[in-house]
Amino acid sequence: MSLQWSSDLEIGIPVIDSQHQRIVDYINGVERAHQHHSQAELLEVLDELIDYTLSHFAFEESLIEEAGYPFCKAHKKVHALFTRRIQAYQQSAKAGEDVTEELAHTLKTWLVNHIKHDDRDYTGVVKANMNEATKRVKTKSGSWMARLFG
């Protein structure tokens, strides 16, 4: 069963939500490869999924670090653990093992749990930090405008 994107998966930070949505698309790609019984299709989508997920993790980690989220290290550790797991599945798939069904299940459960529990925890801190940054930029440009046209 494919994973449907819905508002209960949103954490309220648009840039992160759209990245998560894209990961959901890739996971559904794994599911499609399973339906097509295509190992080649699986390997291709798995490559893309891992690539994209790694950049998403890097982006998210810099965001939470920048915001001073107190559990950065623990959050990163969970990312690393997940990456190792998926890479292990990729190795098995490359070796010709049929891991697609188990993999699709793991990906779906992991992502939903991670978004709903771990990611939601940093939302408040990150949003507050983003608001602060926006305010700083606005004040800056405000004073610049004032100097120029004041």
Partner: peptide, 23 residues
Amino acid sequence: QVLASLVDYTVSHFAFEEALMEE
């Protein structure tokens, strides 16, 4: 299937918790 998800989730939770204790 639930047991598999439970193992997965617990392993991830333990990793998180251990990182906090370490820090």
